[in-house]
Amino acid sequence: MTHLLEPLQASSLTLHNRLIMPPMATAKSEEDGGISQAVLDYYQEKSNGGYFSLIIIEHSFINPKGKASKNQLSVADDHVLEGLRSLAEVIHDNGSKTVMQINHAGSATTQEIIGDTPVGPSPVPHPRNGNPPKELTKQEIAGIVQSFQDAARRVKEAGFDGVEIHSAHGYLLNQFFSPLTNKRTDEYGGTIHNRIRLHLQVIEAVRAAVGNDFPILLRLGASDYKEGGITIEDSQIAAKEFEKAGISILDISGSFLGYTSPITSEQGYFSPLTEAVKKVVSIPVILTGGVTESLAAEQLLVAEKADLIGVGRAVFKNSQWAKQAIKTLVTVSPN
């Protein structure tokens, strides 16, 4: 059997193969962030056939001040629950497991989107949009932890198989992790352990809301690829702490450069990051980044660069990608 088609157990999550559809924003929600028919149709099409063992739903805002963009999905209040239940059912009916990604944009949003000044760990302009945020108070930080907890409860109530905490692509938790945007001098800034304090508080709060058997994933922006930013050594330390705190799967991606790498554009271009993280943890690690061929995905698994492979843009363009990829692998390796 090929590596890509092997099952994997992570916490209480049983995956029938190693192929993941990572979160990709669609901007298809209702104006208030509710689940629209367009969202249901999109995930129906992408999950058809159950070829992905896991589908991670695009980032969804935990409170209105953390909304990243127009028509972003919401997990910010209970009125979205019915729509979320429908979304989970669509994917389950097609034979895949599904996890919802929850997020706070921090300074990676605009006043136009949230109707207020964006917030961040420090009043440092966001490296991508240049907007200087308002520095969060400790009381406001506690409120954000509460919002993550409430969002995770809703994800579980809606019938999803797990929840993913977003700390990548320059959003709020990523802003706390990165020395480029976190200039705080209190217990949330300075050392690596202080810069992940908020992450650990969020993990603890989410765990309290969902119980011990519900998988919690964390998407980590593992490198800023910039002097003075997050290093892979930082991410190895963080990854060990996140595993200790109860994270079930680590989903590795980029930081302020988003889902791109300045070093290479070859398939699986985040593999140096996932390989380094995989060396220091025993939980599964997801690799995404430019994978467009099933044989490349297979080779990345064989080389032990990761435990699970996320294929995003190729599936965005071609909904039949996973079906075709698995057929190719079975043809090449019939045993």
Rank of each mutant, 00 (worst) to 15 (best):
S69Q: 12
Q299C: 03
I144L: 10
G50K: 03
V330I: 14
P22Y: 05
T117P: 04
D234Y: 10
L250P: 01
W321G: 02
L295P: 00
G190A: 02
A25L: 12
L136Q: 01
L273M: 11
E233I: 14
Q201E: 15
L218A: 12
A297S: 02
R153N: 07
D150L: 14
Y171K: 08
A239C: 10
G312N: 10
Q72E: 13
L8H: 06
V99C: 13
E187D: 15
I144H: 01
K46M: 11
T2Q: 12
I196N: 13
D224V: 09
A314T: 02
H59V: 14
N129V: 07
V145I: 15
G258H: 12
G83T: 04
A245F: 06
I57A: 08
D213T: 11
Y42S: 07
F148P: 00
G211V: 11
L300A: 09
F176Q: 03
H166F: 08
T260Q: 14
P118Y: 10
R195G: 01
V206E: 04
A108F: 15
A151S: 14
M100Y: 11
S261T: 12
P118T: 08
A306G: 06
A152H: 02
G33V: 09
G268Y: 05
G211P: 05
E112L: 15
T181F: 10
D150A: 13
I249F: 08
M24P: 00
K240F: 06
K156C: 04
I216R: 00
I237V: 13
L250G: 01
I192F: 08
T117A: 13
R313F: 11
E89D: 12
D32S: 07
T264S: 15
G246H: 12
P7D: 08
R197I: 06
A158C: 08
Q72N: 03
S255R: 01
A325C: 08
N48R: 14
Q72K: 00
L4N: 00
A205Q: 03
E233Y: 11
P262N: 12
D251M: 12
S69A: 13
D78T: 09
D251W: 01
I326K: 01
E204H: 04
D186M: 13
H92M: 07
F242Q: 01
E304C: 11
M1C: 09
S265V: 09
K323N: 08
L217A: 06
T2C: 14
Y171P: 02
A168R: 01
E140T: 04
E45C: 08
L84E: 05
D150N: 08
I20E: 05
T274S: 15
P215M: 11
E243F: 07
G258W: 10
L87S: 02
S12T: 15
I309D: 03
K97R: 14
V281M: 14
D213I: 07
D224T: 07
G162S: 03
P118R: 06
S122Y: 06
G159S: 12
F61K: 01
L329W: 01
S294D: 09
